[in-house]
Design a protein around this nucleic acid. Sequence first.
DNA 1: GTGCAGATTTGCAATAGGTGCAACTTTGCA
DNA 2: TGCAAAGTTGCACCTATTGCAAATCTGCAC
Lengths: 206, 206
Amino acid sequence: MDDRPSLRERKKLRTRQAIATAALRLFAERGYEETTIADIAAAADVAPRTFFSYFPSKEDVVFAEIDDRLAEVAERLRRTPGETPMETIRRSIVDVLNAIVTEHADYGAVQVALVLERPALRARALQRMTDAQEAIEALLRDLCPGISEIDAVAASGVAIGGMQAVVAHCRRGGYDPLAMRTALDRAVDIVEHGLVSVEALSSPSP
Amino acid sequence: MDDRPSLRERKKLRTRQAIATAALRLFAERGYEETTIADIAAAADVAPRTFFSYFPSKEDVVFAEIDDRLAEVAERLRRTPGETPMETIRRSIVDVLNAIVTEHADYGAVQVALVLERPALRARALQRMTDAQEAIEALLRDLCPGISEIDAVAASGVAIGGMQAVVAHCRRGGYDPLAMRTALDRAVDIVEHGLVSVEALSSPSP
DNA sequence: GTGCAGATTTGCAATAGGTGCAACTTTGCA
DNA sequence: TGCAAAGTTGCACCTATTGCAAATCTGCAC
């Protein structure tokens, strides 16, 4: 008796969806700063004031979809089989990146990509990333009760850093599936075995 | 004949300093969002409009000092002796963190620390961090002409991730010099040798 | 020194994000 | 059906940020 949202809930969800969809569409059509809250509200057929009872700020609406998907990933991670923490981390990285890829497939790379160019949104995206980092750290502490704080924090930091790198790389490369896969594998490798595994870093020096 | 700023330059610098100092002081006294541009301008004895000809936004003024110091670090890094890229990376991490520590010593941990709690500022700080990441990546490509894009991007990502982790850790721990040093060493180690060097991650699994 | 050209500062008006509040409407439930 | 809780809306306001043009100041030449 938990899986049947009341009329109220459903309606609320629908409104939220309407706002998010309208916003994303307008952002894609005219651009982020060129779209006002008033525009979004009008397109979603609600009062401008109502926008703020669904999203705390204009920026947040952009991440509505992604957040939903990340929540799923987190859920999946919570139910860890009998794997080692290292495997869990690796899986989480792959999962998150797949979530991002799926996101792109759904909404079209253009929208999200363009949006990520806006400084304000970029900043927000990064904010989300540290939030994710803290989540990973918590997960880690949970999986390895004896781990030291610095180890937990550094491990999650390195993992997130690697992920971010892959995303950045893919953004530049146009999200080619094969290239993304390759980049992902390589990055996970570096995260696992450290910079020493990058030969280029140890030999030449102009 | 490059080290003698004209009257104009000096005055400009003084005004910039006045604005920055006034802003930081007010932020520390009443808090970030409790301080308006008008307040800052009044305290620095300039017109509100003038604020924006020195800093593009309210957020930027917070990072004025830190940016100056990071610029110094970058300058130092450019003149690389005959070390391997790996050593350069390690050195850059240590340098940047030392810059942050110095910053704290100068302006008082309270100000910067409190300021970093504000979501808007946190986001901006992260933005700076990716900017730094791109700088590191460029440096890397410069030092290792043959390095693949993904390697360069992943290596810089991992390095920045580690740094961020240390900063986060120190923030929580109150910036104890000894603890910071320990954390730093450990983090650099993880960055260099990867997560596999964290034993806790490979053994137990609840 | 005097004066001009270019750089700075400033006031004014306007746009837009975001918040508090109180009135109005809809929904859940007895 | 009828009330209380939840959701929606209009309104007034605060503040950041920007464009514009007038008012000042500084560097440099004569």
